[in-house]
Design a protein around this nucleic acid. Sequence first.
DNA 1: TCGAGTCCTT
DNA 2: AAGGACTCGA
Lengths: 363, 363
Amino acid sequence: MLEARLQEAALLKRLLDSIKELVTDANFECNEEGINLQAMDNSHVALVAVKLDATGFKKYRCDRPMPLGVNLNSLTKVLKCAKDDDICIIKASDDADILNLVYEARSSDRIAEYDMKLMDIDAETLGIPDTEYDARVTMTASEFTRIVRDLSQLGESVRIEVSKEGVRFASEGEAANGNVLLKQTEAAREKYANYGKEDEEPKEEDDDDDDDEEGSSSKKKIKKEKNMKKEDADVEMEGEEEDEDQEEFKPKSDDEGEEEQDEDEGDKKNGKKRKKAPAKSNGKPAKKVKKSDETPADGGVLIEMNQHVSLTFSLKYLVNFSKSSALSNTVQLMMSNDVPLLVSYKFGQGEIKYYLAPKIGEE
Amino acid sequence: MLEARLQEAALLKRLLDSIKELVTDANFECNEEGINLQAMDNSHVALVAVKLDATGFKKYRCDRPMPLGVNLNSLTKVLKCAKDDDICIIKASDDADILNLVYEARSSDRIAEYDMKLMDIDAETLGIPDTEYDARVTMTASEFTRIVRDLSQLGESVRIEVSKEGVRFASEGEAANGNVLLKQTEAAREKYANYGKEDEEPKEEDDDDDDDEEGSSSKKKIKKEKNMKKEDADVEMEGEEEDEDQEEFKPKSDDEGEEEQDEDEGDKKNGKKRKKAPAKSNGKPAKKVKKSDETPADGGVLIEMNQHVSLTFSLKYLVNFSKSSALSNTVQLMMSNDVPLLVSYKFGQGEIKYYLAPKIGEE
DNA sequence: TCGAGTCCTT
DNA sequence: AAGGACTCGA
């Protein structure tokens, strides 16, 4: 038995808008901690992972873990029947063959109820390791959207290059080449000082003891990352059907990875973890990270990095990912060389993460 | 070497939006005085001429005249990558095979750079004489847009008829006939009293002594116009490839035209030069003609004419021209019987002019 | 007058 | 399916 009451149907609607073109069917894995969805896109090039925390619901009850196999097109249709500010109650009985959605107007004078057929979907929940990345870029979602959309006019792919000074997105096309450089600014640094530290579990890291083992950890982390991959290989994407695309996901194996940029690395990497331990939160008061963030001004990025990274990705997917800007004002790009990019949008009740393998041939 | 710095990319964006459906490729003729573009539309029925004064740029440098052959679709794409309030720097080296565009955010924390391939386009710069017209109609761009769009729903063409009292736009269609009469009002007269006299070379008229020498000069001007045509025939549109459409552009041939209107003629041609000599500004204070004009109220037209004119034009083109209302709030229609209509939008940094041959058969 | 939603076009 | 334009509502 699952019963989840959502304050606003809009959240689900936006969520579905974000992923429905990438994925057609997916299991909503419900357990007492919340609802998770994970799926490869239809061409098995990208992976999307959604997490909705139980705490984000007005009411949440899930007696036992259950996968709800949903056709996203159907769910999108049903969700279109909800008004944005309707209260939305989702129910499924233990046999999990029907998803029951109730939309209740704020005023309670309208109650709509929909039953949607569920389906059995092979559970391919992939264990995605909480990898460490060499570079993390935090920026406004709208700017990211803008950049990938702009560049997608020119060419098929974009090279993303991160250095301490900023991040550069560069594309080449028949008619024109273009690149956009976003500089790290003090304003951006302050703006995002607390990003992901409130309301949100970092989750992207697994070092639970402490966030700031600066120094020392660079190697460790890199190793850890690799380890993770190995360890979870069987449950990872690689473990799945052998798709040639798959290969891209487990990039070339690490030839380098011995370097130390301890201080920076430590800082960066632990940034997320450090949330609760306000070790050095720039002294900023804990601003609520509401739906996303409340910062209005565009421009500027926060760069956290150990190492210069330069990766090339298909713009088509990035444009697709960027639809999630409806869910959050802020996006984070996590990158390590030759490793899939992680694009993360955190919102009040959870997070949506996209993984995309880099183009190997560069271009 | 060309380098031009534009305060707002929006100007270029709007400019391209205005013409990109009319013309696919065109030379941006750059010289020390600014940038000019001139092209026939794809079906060789209309001609568009854009002028951007060097003085309108924040910085402008052009060492030697150079034509930049641009595919307007490509340029449009590249310009879409600029935000409206970006500073836009255009550069081309002397070999002129690449156009470099840099967009700089106001905050300078974003710098985008695009390189666009240029192409060789047969220079067909047509010498367009600064013709005298029998009638000039000045009105708000939005009203013009509205009228041609409205009438285009009824029929294919519109008859524009100018009398002292006003201007009438009339169309006939299968389902309905319609006409719109705009009366000249005192308000409009005042509103436009200084239009084009500030910031801008008049250029549309050369009667520097007065705008309203009604009566007396009508014949004179007509003659002048014809002279102009003859004189510049070789460089005029007529001089181009023999397109049957061409014919429309050189309406009836001047039977008279032996007279000398030296002063007028000289004026016209030098009109641009004369700008600094504020001969007769109607005593109006020099209101800045900013982006366009600052007059808010719609309605009413200013009519300046020697002679009643009645001409029929294809609405399709007029609707197309009217896109330039993004550039200016005011439009001027210049007409003489059997001569191409000139539709002119003046904006802070220049002007865009469209020429359209009348339909001869009337309908 | 501005913003959001819908419809149409590419 | 996405972007732009237009219309209606707040």
